[in-house]
Design a protein around this nucleic acid. Structure first.
Lengths: 228, 228
DNA sequence: TACCAAATGTGACTATTGTCACACGCACGC
DNA sequence: GCGTGCGTGTGACAATAGTCACATTTGGTA
């Protein structure tokens, strides 16, 4: 793939939109392009963390398996998202796996290259700081939601998180199976099913051929803040 | 307070231990010293985030109140800890409050000063990145624990998190009331009480005059990884 | 010391959610 | 067309943890 194309892919998405040309070309020069099939692991829990990925296309799921086998989905990553910074920065092992849920490509950057880029381009550090700040905010939000609310409001929150902002017809960014939704929202598949059925009756969501569509965004937001 | 004393306080703790003198004096020059009584709020949920704090002495609790009134304790901060970076970096409002749980002092740094320091001392950004990386790791760990485990292992985890590494007699860093422990571990006060009583019978912990002491650290660690 | 407020201990009951079991339907490949 | 498998729908039941109510203890202080 040509440098220009990579540059375009990078610049299209969030974090790197306001990079100058030197930064982009440095990223591309020092990184290398990697491709994954659906189901491949971009990052594996337990491995040492010696590189960082920038998702260029496709979609991936960040999840961890607890010592009792329980799978916890932390996030779904879109193109433009940085993955694996944590282990790279603190030198620890990867605490979560990242799995491609569709054909996916990314730019991989080694620790050495990363450090060079950070020291050459001062603005990169600040940009990364901002990304990480919003990630902490999101994580705290998850903790709050998981703790403070019962399953209904919680599922509402996770559905809203999956909903596209410019919501064409309320479709979600990702069509997750009910089991996957369960791992994301922290409830059993059966419970997800019952909750969706109930909302489907009240015209809050529609479930058509396995795909969830949000019909009443306002109502769902209201449920997400509900007392119980 | 004199600059030297501040410098000593800063250097005593984690993050700033390896700052050079110029960095330390810059922090002290541009920041200002603030003191709080027990119960004071260093940071208030909902406020705009225009400053960052470095805890110098005392102890503080980071917590958020959900829209349904439920209080969630995210962390307890020790001297040396940076507080309030998130809102400062991403420009959003404070999503959590920080409350002094004993007389506490801190160095307060405005956004302008913070930006100057970051651009003057390149290493500061990298240091901050590392701090934030470990914070994300901890948050993900909380999410995993809250999701994957039942109350027993969860309480074990939070007790371990409060336990001093050099454990003199298994005392905790903080003597929390059972209600506070409940807000921290995400369970009701009564449930905490029952769980502690049960562990007390099995000699895993001791509860003396309201204070928890870990007797069998290994056993508690084992419980923290348990299947249910 | 004696009082008060706050923190703790404990029983009975309830609510929420998970688990198990099994039926159904739909898509895909042989 | 017909299995085979995966995702889904749903009932019955079990388990975990919360709530409520109240007794008891403790610690601080007038």
């Amino acid at each position: 793939m040509k440098a220009e194309e990579l540059a375009n892919l990078l610049a299209e998405h969030s974090l790197f939109a306001d990079c100058d040309e030197a930064e982009l070309s440095d990223l591309i020069l020092r990184g290398h392009f990697v491709q994954y099939k659906k189901g491949d692991e971009l990052i594996m829990q337990g491995d040492p963390g010696n590189s960082l990925l920038i998702l260029l296309s496709g979609n991936a799921r960040t999840s961890m398996i607890a010592s009792n086998g329980h799978e916890v989905v932390l996030d779904y990553a879109e193109p433009g998202q940085v993955l694996g910074e944590i282990a790279l920065l603190d030198g620890g092992d990867r605490t979560a796996s990242v799995t491609a849920i569709e054909p996916t490509s990314a730019l991989s950057i080694t620790r050495a290259a990363f450090e060079e880029i950070l020291s050459t381009h001062k603005n990169m550090a600040l940009r990364l700081l901002k990304v990480m700040a919003s990630r902490i905010r999101m994580a705290n939000n998850m903790i709050e939601g998981d703790r403070a609310y019962t399953s209904g409001p919680r599922l509402a929150r996770y559905l809203l998180r999956l909903s596209v902002v410019g919501a064409e017809e309320g479709r979600l960014k990702l069509d997750l199976s009910q089991s996957e939704l369960g791992n994301f929202a922290g409830m059993s598949r059966e419970h997800i099913n019952r909750q969706l059925s109930s909302w489907s009756e009240s015209q809050i969501v529609a479930v058509e051929s396995g795909k969830v569509r949000i019909l009443d965004h306002a109502m769902l937001s209201h449920i997400a803040e509900a007392d119980s």
